[in-house]
Write a protein that binds this DNA or RNA. Structure first.
Lengths: 154, 154
DNA sequence: GATGAAAAATCTGTGAC
DNA sequence: GTCACAGATTTTTCATC
C-alpha cells in the first residue's frame, strides 16, 4: 500500500467535503496548513486516487426528469456470460445513471431516470424488460435521497 | 415553474458533466458561448438548484474503508412516527453515507461504510440492529459501482 | 433580459528556500 | 513545510442588442 493519507490529509479531506467550492487558501486556513502545502497534498491524493473526481451533482428533477427508479436484478446463474452481457446491455441505456453490483440476495441495482410516468413505462417496456439473462426484477420508485455524512471520522 | 434550462443551458451542462474540471473559458468554447455568458448561466443554475452541488468524490477504499454495504429496510407501518424516528437515528450514525426513501416493496435504503469486516460487524450490531421501528432488514455487500451515463440526452 | 468585451479581483501552481 | 510571485482564472462592469 502506498502512503495512506495521514492525519493532516484527513483534516484536509474533511474540509474539502464540507465546503467543496472554497478556494484552496481558505481550505488551507481551516485545515491548518499553508496553501502550497495543501495544494501538494491534494495533488498527491488525486494521483493516488483517494480523490477520485470532482463532479457536479445535477438535480434531475429540476431539469425535468421527474421519475427516478431503483431496479434490483437477479441474473441467470447458469450462464457464465450472463453478467458481462447484462452489464454491456445496461450501459447502453442512456437513462441508466448508475449500476452497482452486489454480493448477497440481489446481484445488481440500476438507477434509472425518466421524464414522467409515461416515459418511464416506455423505458421499462423497451429497454429494461429486454435486458438479457434476467431471472428476477424488483422496482422501487425513489422518493428522496439524503446524503450528508461528511462528518465521518475520516 | 421558474425558467427551465434552455437548449444552451443543457449544452453547458453536458460539457460540465463530461469534463467537470475544465476551466470556464474552455467549457464556454465547447458550449459555443462566451465565458461571461457561461458564468451567468452556471450561476443561475446554481441558484435555481439545477446544479445541486459541486463535490469531490472520495474513494473510500483508497482511504482504508474497505467495506460498503447496502441495507434495505422495511419499517413498522402501524406507528406514524416510525419514519421520522428512524431517519433521525440513521442520520446519527456517521458510517451511514447515504439514505434513500422509496415507494415500493422496500421503504428505505442505507449505504454504510466500514473499515473492514470486523468493523462492519460492530457497526451492524451496535448501530444498525438498534435502529428503531424496523420490521425487516436485508444486507447486500457492494462489489462495484459504475456511474457514467452523462451522455444522457439532457 | 440577455449578451460580449474587457478590466479588476482572485486564485492556482511553481520555484526557491 | 514556508514564502513569494507569475500566470491563469473567475467575476464584475459597462455598453449593446
Amino acid at each position: 500500500m502506498k502512503s495512506m493519507p495521514d492525519a493532516t490529509d484527513r483534516r484536509i479531506l474533511r474540509q474539502l467535503l464540507a465546503d467543496p467550492e472554497a478556494p484552496n487558501a481558505v481550505l488551507a486556513g481551516r485545515a491548518g496548513v499553508t496553501p502550497a502545502s495543501l495544494w501538494r497534498r491534494l495533488e498527491r491524493m488525486r494521483e493516488t486516487g483517494v480523490i477520485a473526481a470532482i463532479q457536479s451533482r445535477i438535480d434531475w428533477r429540476a431539469l425535468g426528469w421527474e421519475v427516478e427508479v431503483s431496479l434490483r436484478f437477479n441474473l441467470d446463474k447458469t450462464n457464465p456470460r450472463a453478467f458481462d452481457e447484462f452489464m454491456a446491455a445496461a450501459r447502453d441505456v442512456p437513462e441508466v445513471i448508475e449500476i452497482q453490483t452486489f454480493l448477497g440476495s440481489v446481484d445488481l441495482r440500476l438507477s434509472v431516470i425518466a421524464r414522467d410516468m409515461a416515459h418511464w413505462q416506455q423505458i421499462y417496456r423497451d429497454r429494461i424488460l429486454t435486458l438479457p439473462h434476467v431471472s428476477d426484477i424488483d422496482a422501487l420508485m425513489l422518493v428522496s435521497t439524503i446524503k450528508d455524512s461528511t462528518e465521518l471520522a475520516l
